[in-house]
Nucleic acid binder design. Structure first.
Length: 407
DNA sequence: CCTCCACCGGAAAGCCGGGTCA
DNA sequence: TGACCCGGCTTTCCGGTGGAGG
């Protein structure tokens, strides 16, 4: 008997698991009819060879922004093909493509130019883009997903792209910016903002009922008949609705619940599986984040995790961090840098740090671990570079508590 | 009401490893 | 090969500040 046979035979639950992944774009998006209509209306001038207004798309995570825009983009290209209208849509995820250089390179490559990953001056890549687009007369729609990620390092790209039309002879470019964060506008040049948001399309969060519809639609494709216990979909929807109506989260819950059921060799996905899924997702998320932390953040976090109840100031945790570094023979970073690493850990939700003033005793952060400290420590100890710290745990605790907190 | 602590956090510049190009 | 560019990570420098205690 082949060793895989056991695994092959038993997918009683899933018909097609991929339907539940975020990468899957269904060709019908429930409760997004209005947004689709707006986008189509705003983009339609492209088919007549005119420049559509730049569009700013706003909505929280998991509200279907990306899926909707992609769907409309795809249909726009199809229609353009039929009408021979030379409309092109280019999708860029700014979380990955997060600098001006890379944005330009991505566009240039779309039109067959080869641009190295690095090495050229950014201006040169931009020239390449202009030449590539202007070869024949086209309308190009650039979709900048997670456009807020460009605010820091890629502002130049936004600046150039919003003004590119005056430098092109035959072709036209328009931009669709997608963001889940309105605050990022504060960091940008007012001219860029007004140019980017000539039109706005808002994606409100889904409510629990709408999430149920979405899940049901996918469940039909994803599961065999009758494998979902009554209430499973409703529970997943309700849990996701509690957090700003995130469809992605709802789909994850449903998929992980089913995977747990499958692993337990249960032929039905039950309410209890959903409950286990909630924990598993939470746990997997944190441990993945921690595992991929750079070494200095790990050392720092280890120091904090040694004292789960303690509220640290920046200075205190820095002295502990320095001791830990000495112990494992790694050069310590400066306090300024550690201060930034603390902010990062805070943003990741692993620790809690707020700036407080202790009057006479200065202004500092109050830092406290936010999650299960034991779990964090275990995950950190998997790193071979931190292994030796495990042996010194007691010694370290004594040393540190005597020196730092005595007074 | 003023002072002054212990940091915060912005700006700029340096280092390093990735790369191109002539 | 050397000059040059990009981008991530750090260091250096430094002005700014909320509020307890005088």
């Amino acid at each position: 008997m082949n060793i895989f046979e056991d695994f092959l035979s038993k997918s009683q639950i899933f018909k097609n698991r991929d339907v539940l992944r975020h990468s899957y774009t269904p060709d019908h998006l429930p409760h997004r009819e209005e947004q689709i209509r707006q986008l189509a209306m705003l983009l339609s001038p492209a088919l007549r060879g005119e420049i559509p207004s730049n569009i700013f798309v706003y909505g929280k995570t998991g509200t279907g922004k990306t899926a909707t825009v992609k769907l409309v983009g795809k249909q726009l290209e199809e229609m353009s093909e039929r009408l021979k209208a030379n409309v092109y849509v280019h999708y860029i995820n700014c979380e990955i493509v997060d600098t001006a250089y890379r944005v330009f390179a991505s566009i240039a490559r779309r039109f067959g130019r080869s641009v190295p990953l690095t090495g050229w001056p950014t201006d040169q890549v931009y020239d390449e883009v202009k030449r590539a687009i202007d070869q024949k007369s086209i309308v190009l729609i650039v979709i900048l997903d997670e456009i807020d990620k460009l605010a820091k390092k890629g502002e130049e790209a936004l600046y150039s792209l919003t003004r590119i039309n005056s430098e092109l002879e035959k072709s036209k470019v328009s931009i669709i910016g997608i963001s889940n964060n309105l605050n990022f506008k504060d960091f940008l040049d007012a001219r860029i903002i007004s140019s980017l948001s000539e039109e706005e399309v808002v994606f409100p969060p889904y409510n629990a009922e709408q999430l149920v519809d979405i899940l049901k639609q996918r469940a039909i494709l994803a599961f065999n008949d009758g494998v979902l216990e009554d209430g499973v979909i409703e529970l997943c929807a309700a849990l996701a609705a509690q957090e700003h109506g995130d469809a992605r989260k709802a789909l994850d819950l449903l998929r992980v619940s089913a995977e747990i059921a499958e692993r337990e060799k249960d032929s039905v996905v039950r309410i209890e599986h959903v409950k286990k899924a909630v924990e598993k997702i939470e746990h997997d998320h944190i441990s993945e984040v921690i595992r991929t932390l750079p070494i200095h953040s790990k050392i720092l976090l280890y120091g904090i995790a040694l004292f789960p109840e303690k509220k640290f100031t920046t200075g205190e945790i820095y002295t502990i961090y320095k001791k830990l570094c000495a112990k494992i023979g790694i050069d310590a970073l400066t306090q300024r840098r550690i201060s930034d690493l603390i902010s990062e850990l805070d943003m990741l939700g692993i620790i809690n740090s707020i700036v407080i003033s202790k009057g006479r005793y200065g202004r500092t952060r109050e830092i406290k671990i936010d999650t299960n400290a034991d779990m964090i420590k275990k995950i950190l100890e998997e790193d071979y570079r931190l292994e030796s710290l495990k042996r010194f745990e007691k010694e370290l605790k004594n040393l540190v508590s005597l020196e730092t907190f005595e007074s």
